[in-house]
């Protein structure tokens, strides 16, 4: 559990909150996404690699289309792991987390854990992982020093929060509103209260994600938490540039620099 823990420490030492980015492997092809991830690795503290699924139930339209494009470029789990491997050659310090849906991870069988460890993955976020199976995944990942990052939402009862944090490691991901990725933020006060409550129940860092599109929101959210996750916004940028590589990377860099400043403690 080295890299994730270190990344939060490092951000702290630099008087900053943690900046986490999400992008989908294989959107709109493997090589394009590799270039995007390399860019993200140079500005973000942690990168989440979206594992595309044919039925991404928790995603808004931007990320849905991204999954669809990735799948039509013939992305496979094997290719994603070799992508991580290549990214690791360029960067040995920053955590890489796979985020996806249960069925894609299940399809790998028991060898999943060994494969992701060998590729250089640091943790998993499984959107539709049920409680009863979280202990199993937590222990399996713990055995190989990887983290199981769990989501907590505004509708999670307080009692359940205590259950969730028990089988979580790395950090906790607070979903900022009732909705799918990329929708608009609703209630800041609620986020503030819930993050505070979660932090009273765990020593793990708590980050906020879903709906963080603008610097202003990133700033507000990072003040009350340990970091923010930017996802749909990045895919938006690439889409707006029609997947032209140089333009996409240029505008991503601009946006990332801005988010970087926004999460700095002031």
């Amino acid at each position: 559990m080295g890299r994730i823990k270190d990344s939060f420490e490092r951000a702290k030492n630099q008087e900053s909150k943690t900046l986490i980015t999400y992008y989908v492997a294989g959107d709109n092809n493997l090589n394009f996404s590799k270039k995007v991830f390399l860019k993200l690795l140079s500005y973000a503290d942690i990168i989440e690699i979206g594992v595309p699924f044919s039925d991404p139930m928790a995603e808004g339209s931007v990320i849905q289309r991204s999954h669809e494009r990735a799948l039509s470029s013939d992305i496979t789990f094997k290719k994603i792991l070799s992508l991580v491997n290549k990214l690791r050659v360029h960067n040995q310090d920053k955590p890489i987390v796979l985020m996806g849906y249960m069925n894609n991870f299940l399809s790998q069988g028991e060898s999943l854990f060994k494969k992701i460890k060998n590729a250089g993955v640091d943790g998993l976020i499984i959107v539709d992982l049920p409680y009863e199976e979280s202990e199993f995944f937590y222990n399996k990942l713990k055995d190989i020093d990887l983290d199981l990052i769990r989501l907590i939402s505004p509708t999670t009862p307080k009692k359940t929060i205590e259950k969730i944090v028990k089988f979580s490691s790395g950090f906790l991901y607070y979903v900022s509103f009732r909705g799918v990725t990329g929708a608009k933020l609703s209630n800041f006060k609620e986020v503030q209260d819930n993050v505070k409550y979660i932090k009273s129940k765990t020593k793990l860092p708590v980050v906020v994600g879903f709906g963080i599109k603008e610097g202003e929101i990133a700033q507000k959210m990072s003040k009350i938490s340990d970091g923010v996750v930017i996802g749909s916004r990045l895919i938006d940028i690439v889409q707006q540039n029609n997947f032209r590589l140089n333009d996409s990377l240029k505008f991503l860099e601009k946006s990332l620099k801005k988010f970087r400043r926004d999460v700095r403690k002031k």
Binding site: D128, S153, T155, I164
Partner: peptide, 18 residues
Amino acid sequence: NGRFGSFGGRYVSETLIS
């Protein structure tokens, strides 16, 4: 747990659980 043997269950995002 809402299981029929190993089948069934509740594989949804956290927001829906409650």
